[in-house]
Amino acid sequence: MKRMNYCSILICILFWASVGRAQNSITKKQQLKYLPDIDVYDIHGKHTTLKQLGKNKVLFIDSWFIPCPPCFIEMGMLHKLYAKYLNNKDFCFITLCRTDSGVVKKFIAQDTSMANYVKSYQFFSERQDFKLPVYFIEGCDSKVNHVGKQLESFAPTDKTKCPDAQLDFVGYPTVTIFNKKGELILQKTGYDGNENVNMGDIESAIKPSLAAK
């Protein structure tokens, strides 16, 4: 990993702790069973629904926000998974972000106003770029801002619209996978940095589903 200012790392970690719960492992009673019909829009503002994205496909959803260190750490693995299945017509890979789309656009473009977040992402993910497809839910538009060395956070317009509320989980990052019938086959919260184990868990779920008619 490249070195970065430890003050910036500390700020990100403290901020993450204050605006969202991102744990290495969470155990909770699972309520979600089927793919909900949620309206989403992509980075360009084009609207669709999760059911449309997942129609006759295995739908992989990773939920995250800026700046969430565990989410950023997971991004290295996610880029490898995305590249591996990019050309599989039976697989749809998306991320759902609870951060405002305007903020995320600047983040992906590495706008100078997002320098602290970009440095944090590059440090934790060990990547210089961000190539994953990002979708958003209307009303779930949390904003972040730097004022000197301080971070200000703004609650989303409607917390009930955010991925954790609609996909029934309690921390970020969370991977949620549905099979071609729209049935939940895996939901896993947190990322402990063990790429091989996490990739193995994901592929153990999606490979049989991809093979199913």
Score class of each variant (00 low, 15 high):
residue 126 E to T: 10
residue 190 G to N: 03
residue 142 S to H: 02
residue 188 K to E: 14
residue 178 F to N: 02
residue 204 S to Y: 11
residue 167 L to R: 04
residue 125 S to G: 05
residue 100 D to R: 03
residue 177 I to D: 00
residue 138 E to N: 14
residue 97 C to R: 04
residue 127 R to M: 14
residue 148 G to Y: 01
residue 80 K to V: 11
residue 153 S to H: 12
residue 180 K to C: 05
residue 159 K to A: 12
residue 79 H to C: 08
residue 75 M to S: 14
residue 141 D to W: 02
residue 145 N to W: 07
residue 80 K to I: 09
residue 118 V to Y: 01
residue 194 N to K: 10
residue 190 G to Q: 04
residue 198 N to K: 07
residue 153 S to R: 05
residue 137 I to A: 01
residue 98 R to S: 15
residue 176 T to M: 03
residue 120 S to V: 13
residue 196 N to H: 11
residue 114 M to N: 03
residue 138 E to Q: 13
residue 75 M to K: 10
residue 118 V to G: 00
residue 101 S to V: 13
residue 158 D to K: 14
residue 150 Q to C: 00
residue 183 E to N: 13
residue 119 K to C: 06
residue 194 N to I: 11
residue 88 N to D: 15
residue 106 K to C: 06
residue 157 T to A: 08
residue 109 A to H: 11
residue 76 G to K: 05
residue 131 K to E: 13
residue 139 G to N: 06
residue 116 N to I: 09
residue 109 A to I: 07
residue 182 G to F: 05
residue 77 M to Q: 12
residue 123 F to C: 02
residue 146 H to E: 13
residue 174 T to S: 11
residue 152 E to Q: 14
residue 149 K to F: 04
residue 170 V to H: 15
residue 106 K to H: 07
residue 95 T to Q: 07
residue 175 V to E: 05
residue 129 D to L: 10
residue 168 D to R: 13
residue 168 D to M: 11
residue 130 F to T: 04
residue 116 N to R: 14
residue 170 V to C: 07
residue 174 T to L: 03
residue 127 R to L: 15
residue 88 N to V: 09
residue 115 A to F: 11
residue 114 M to R: 03
residue 193 G to M: 08
residue 83 A to M: 09
residue 131 K to P: 02
residue 201 D to Q: 12
residue 122 Q to F: 09
residue 94 I to N: 01
residue 150 Q to T: 00
residue 159 K to R: 13
residue 169 F to D: 02
residue 197 V to N: 12
residue 170 V to T: 15
residue 146 H to Q: 14
residue 116 N to Q: 13
residue 119 K to N: 15
residue 136 F to H: 03
residue 192 D to P: 03
residue 123 F to A: 05
residue 171 G to N: 06
residue 84 K to N: 10
residue 156 P to D: 02
residue 186 L to H: 03
residue 154 F to K: 10
residue 165 A to G: 06
residue 200 G to Y: 10
residue 140 C to H: 00
residue 122 Q to A: 05
residue 167 L to G: 01
residue 157 T to C: 06
residue 191 Y to S: 04
residue 99 T to M: 07
residue 145 N to Y: 09
residue 90 D to G: 09
residue 137 I to D: 00
residue 187 Q to L: 08
residue 112 T to N: 14
residue 195 E to C: 06
residue 168 D to H: 12
residue 139 G to R: 05
residue 134 V to H: 00
residue 169 F to L: 10
residue 141 D to F: 04
residue 109 A to E: 12
residue 181 K to Q: 11
residue 132 L to A: 05
residue 88 N to P: 05
residue 136 F to D: 00
residue 167 L to W: 01
residue 162 C to W: 00
residue 142 S to V: 04
residue 130 F to Y: 13
residue 142 S to I: 03
residue 93 F to N: 00
residue 129 D to G: 07
residue 149 K to T: 03
residue 197 V to A: 15
residue 178 F to I: 07
residue 185 I to W: 00
